[in-house]
Design a protein around this nucleic acid. Structure first.
Length: 641
RNA sequence: GCUGGUGUAGCUCAGCUGGUAGAGCAACGCAUUCGUAAUGCGUAGGUCAACGGUUCGAUCCCGUUCACCAGCUCCA
């Protein structure tokens, strides 16, 4: 007897096992026709699955994220089938669905070329057209599975099967391709129509750099052509926003091969942008109870031995030898320096919290393959601060960090972000610095701050590093991508290594609670992020060049210069384009340089004291009195709109 | 660091199987003095990423290094 409970609460009993497909008829057609898979008593299964035990029944449709996952996972099987037909010697690793699509990892002698990618895609389309392909699920014993896959020399599958605890495993057949797979899969292969293979890459088996390097093929698939097009457009749009291209194009920043990877050069306009970001940051920090300090770029190795970095972090540090045999370290972090400043005198509990902030430039010897534009560099300026406080002040300090981060990030135009809380693993307390009570308090302070704000967050137990729990904030940009920015971390390690203490109300010395935080993360990465978020068209208050004045001809150069002078007096960054080029040419360049406003002047304007204004975002907006224009610009800058 | 790909003028890119290179844009010069996204003509510009090897001869073939790209790994 099988009892099925439908989503609307109605129940039905079947004498024997029943196929999911038969139950679909009981659902509204608007839902059943969109079904991809089903859920019975919380377990997901294929639509042709025979249900032997009853429970709550519902379907997974094309409208749900799970439905898309299933589609993508199925696409990876189709791709594997195509690869098997084209390259029969292939060993198959894994082929999951991922955030924007799917991939499959293969091991074969041949190195895939871009032409192979096209050939695989073509083969997939052929397979789709034959029309008679479908996923067939079978459950077999582990022994049978081992025999099956080892007879086909599929060593990765054998390895996976050996790690499965159950006595039986499920396999899925799609044409001649048989895969170890939990499923479920789509009921109709035609659903895979809207796919596209995207790229080739290398990937280690099980992400372990000591094991085989596999060839990974990425692709994506959607239920509709429109959605696929949208995703491909989004990728195009992302390319256009690439800060590595926009940086040099707009005269902001670049990386120079002559200097080495991961080292940024700031051009004049980029420096203005950087100054604006830093200036705003400094003002907000002063207003929020931080004191600015500055610590040296290099320090004796002994300091880094005491902090522990010399032992744990040496691979990432640049080490310098002096001619007198003294060894120095180019600072990879600011914390030890801040601690030395804190320890310059004895602190009473009445002094706390102490908040030291520094735009501290650090250097880390990152592995060459990890470098990426301004987002991952070897030299960068952290917008760093360390807060030294008592246990009683914890909650409030974390909360204030959050407030400040929120204020600063939203002012820069990031209104959405997600939060990740990296917590300890209770089963593994040995590896952590600090006591369980301290971890408890710290994590609760972080959690309270998140929950108070009702923002989406993930808590990941065991993700914390040994010295303390942390929260990371990920900005969501204009086209929905996430960018690492704020981090708020506890440190139970350094206060002990450096004896960072305060005198409590009873005259006893206690260790401080130390919070390490960076709101923007690093100035470099943040400006890279900003550039992509705004696609180079920065809001007026951040635009390096705010207005470009373009006189139609030589006779009006004088007037243009006068207008620019007035604007500069009002704090507007205005330039004149006095080149003897046609107006259209200069307007075009102004557009390509993404200057927010162009102001054209000729006879009419010089007689009336006006400028003909053209906005980058809105096009030509018409003539305005110079005083009025200045007032409007100043207002727009003040509002940081 | 690993796998694969790439490196030609300031930028974007051509250059068949080895015989030392070309276009467009930009720059510069001349003419044009122009009203909202490219005026015309001309000139100049290259150790073909660097170093080594094979060859009579290398941008091209081989090796090493550097940088960049897609990933993996890393980010105590």
């Amino acid at each position: 007897m099988v009892e099925i409970i439908y989503p609307d609460g109605s129940k039905e009993e079947y004498a024997d096992s029943v196929q999911v497909k038969e139950l679909l008829g009981k659902l509204p057609r608007s839902i059943s026709k969109k079904a991809v898979a089903a859920r019975i008593a919380g377990v997901i299964c294929d639509l042709d699955h025979k249900i032997a035990e009853g429970g709550d029944f519902s379907v997974i449709t094309v409208d749900e994220p799970e439905g898309l996952d299933i589609l993508r996972h199925s696409a990876s099987h189709l791709m594997a089938l195509a690869v098997q037909e084209l390259f029969p010697e292939t060993s198959f690793a894994i082929g999951p669905s991922i955030k924007d699509g799917f991939y499959y990892d293969f091991l074969l002698e041949r190195n895939f070329t871009p032409e192979d990618l096209e050939a695989i895609e073509k083969k997939m389309r052929e397979l789709l057209k034959t029309g008679d392909l479908q996923f067939i699920r079978e459950v077999i014993s582990k022994e049978e599975a081992l025999e099956l896959f080892s007879s086909r020399s599929q060593q990765f599958k054998v390895e996976l099967i050996n790690e499965i605890q159950d006595d039986t495993v499920s396999i899925y057949k799609l044409g001649s391709f048989t895969d170890l797979c939990r499923g479920p899969h789509i009921p109709d292969i035609k659903m895979l129509k809207h796919f596209k293979l995207l790229s080739l890459a290398g990937a280690y088996w099980r992400g372990d750099e000591k094991r085989e390097m596999l060839q990974r093929v990425y692709g994506t698939v959607f239920f509709s052509a429109d959605e696929l097009k949208e995703e491909l457009d989004r990728r195009e749009e992302a390319k256009k926003r690439d800060h590595r291209k926009l940086g040099p194009q707009l005269g902001l920043f670049d990386i120079k091969e002559e200097a080495g990877g991961g080292l940024a050069f700031w051009y004049p306009k980029g420096f203005i942008l950087r100054e604006l970001v830093e200036g705003f940051w400094k003002k907000e920090h002063r207003d929020n109870g931080y004191e600015m300090i500055m610590t040296p770029h290099i320090a004796r190795s002994e300091l880094w031995k005491r902090s522990g970095h010399y032992d744990y972090y040496k691979e990432n540090m640049f080490i310098i030898n002096s001619s007198e045999g003294q060894e120095f370290v180019l600072k990879p972090m600011n914390c030890p320096g801040h601690i030395l400043v804190y320890k310059s005198h004895l602190h009473s509990y009445r002094d706390l919290p102490v908040r030291y902030a520094e735009l501290g430039t650090v250097y880390r010897n990152e592995r060459s393959g990890t470098l990426h534009g301004l987002l991952r560099v070897r030299g960068f300026t952290q917008d760093d601060a360390h807060i030294f406080c008592t246990p009683e002040q914890l909650d409030e300090e974390v909360d204030k960090c959050f407030d400040l981060a929120h204020h600063i990030l939203t002012t820069f135009g990031f209104h959405e972000y997600t939060v990740e809380l990296s917590a300890h693993d209770p089963a593994n307390m040995d590896k952590y610095a600090g006591s369980p009570e301290e971890w408890q308090m710290a994590e609760s302070a972080l959690l309270k701050a998140i929950e108070k704000r009702d923002i989406p967050f993930k808590k990941i137990a065991g993700e914390a590093v040994f010295y303390g729990p942390k929260i990371d904030l990920k900005l969501i940009d204009a086209i929905g991508r996430g960018w690492q920015a704020t981090t708020i971390q506890f440190d139970f390690n350094l206060p002990r290594r450096f004896n960072v203490q305060y005198v409590d109300s009873e005259g006893k010395k206690e260790y401080v609670y130390m919070i390490h935080r960076a709101l923007l993360g690093s100035i470099e990465r943040f400006i890279g992020t900003l550039t992509e978020h705004y696609a180079g068209l920065f809001p007026l208050w951040l635009a390096p060049e705010q207005v470009r004045i373009i006189p139609v001809g030589k006779d009006f150069h004088e007037y243009a210069l006068q207008c620019a002078e007035k604007m500069k007096k009002a704090g507007i960054r205005a330039e004149c384009d006095l080149r003897e080029e046609r107006l259209g040419f200069r307007i075009r360049e102004c557009e390509l340089q993404k200057v927010p406003y162009a102001a054209v002047c000729g006879g009419d304007e010089s007689e009336n004291g006006t400028l003909d204004v053209r906005s980058k975002s809105k096009g030509r907006v018409g003539s305005k009195k110079i005083e009025q224009l200045i007032a409007e610009l100043v207002d727009e800058v003040d509002r940081k709109a």
